[in-house]
Simulated scan of single mutants.
Amino acid sequence: MSAKIRTLLVDDEPLAVRGLKIRLDPYEDIEIVGSAANGRDAVKQIKELKPDLVFLDIQMPGFDGFAVMRSLIGETEMPIVIFVTAFDQYALEAFKAHALDYLMKPVEEERLAEAIVRVREAMAQRLAVEQTAKLMELLDNMDNPPKEALTAILEAPVETRDDRFDPHLRIKDRGHITIVPVSEVDYIDAAGDYMCIHVGEKTHILREKMKQMERRLDPKIFQRIHRSTIVNLERVKEVRPHSNGECFLTLLSGKELKVSRSYKDVLGRFL
């Protein structure tokens, strides 16, 4: 059995990380040792975990993929880097010879397979050091902020998701488990001791009570609008007041939901 390629995934989009994990799952020699949602955390994990391979998103707010690489200049143990980017072909020409490979978003399975082959070859032929040296030379010659500025950014506090709330829901159905990202949920309504999770045209059934569900969801995003309904505020397209004191919300999907008078304070979220 071939040696494991210890791999770190870096992207500020949780869905992008999850998608890449799914696509990498069939590769038995790829061992995902961690993921980072921002550049500062990426630098920390690269130094601590010392991965063999990093899939590095370029376009991250504040501290992008290039800044991550610049901040690692001088490190003795550097990973192989595969850029993941939404840049167009013209922009890619500036650096594609300086990284082992690059993948365009959305990542295609065929291109990912090609990249993994290149990683294996690079490790087998001990080309990783040479490739990294070329990349560092490129970044060092770019018009970049001084090392002191990079250090200040690395040490600055970073805003992270509140880990008290679930990023996804696991729906069990006849031995199968469906993982539903909460960001994709339109609304949730109660049917006795069951929750109906509405995602687009699909409805998932979860055995749970309303109070339990409320505790699992970030109240900045999910709000109760009726004694039996929770709505994802980010999915609301239109607010329509009614003369009797009630209000109706139209979601991006076209679904219309009623806000009862008992929960009318939720309307302040839209003002």
Rank of each mutant, 00 (worst) to 15 (best):
I230T: 06
I230F: 02
I230Y: 00
V231E: 08
N232H: 03
L233C: 14
L233K: 11
L233I: 09
L233Y: 09
L233D: 03
L233A: 12
R235F: 02
R235W: 02
R235C: 01
V236D: 09
V236P: 01
K237A: 13
K237G: 05
E238K: 13
E238N: 13
V239E: 05
V239G: 05
R240C: 04
R240V: 12
P241D: 12
P241T: 11
H242P: 00
H242K: 14
H242Y: 14
H242N: 15
H242C: 14
H242W: 15
S243C: 02
N244K: 09
N244R: 09
G245H: 00
G245N: 00
E246R: 12
C247P: 06
C247R: 05
C247D: 04
F248E: 15
F248K: 14
F248Q: 14
L249M: 10
L249Q: 06
T250I: 06
T250M: 10
L251P: 02
L251K: 01
S253W: 04
S253V: 02
S253E: 02
G254P: 12
G254C: 15
K255R: 06
K255A: 13
E256C: 02
K258E: 15
K258Q: 15
V259S: 02
V259Y: 08
S260Y: 00
R261K: 03
S262I: 12
S262P: 08
S262Y: 15
S262C: 13
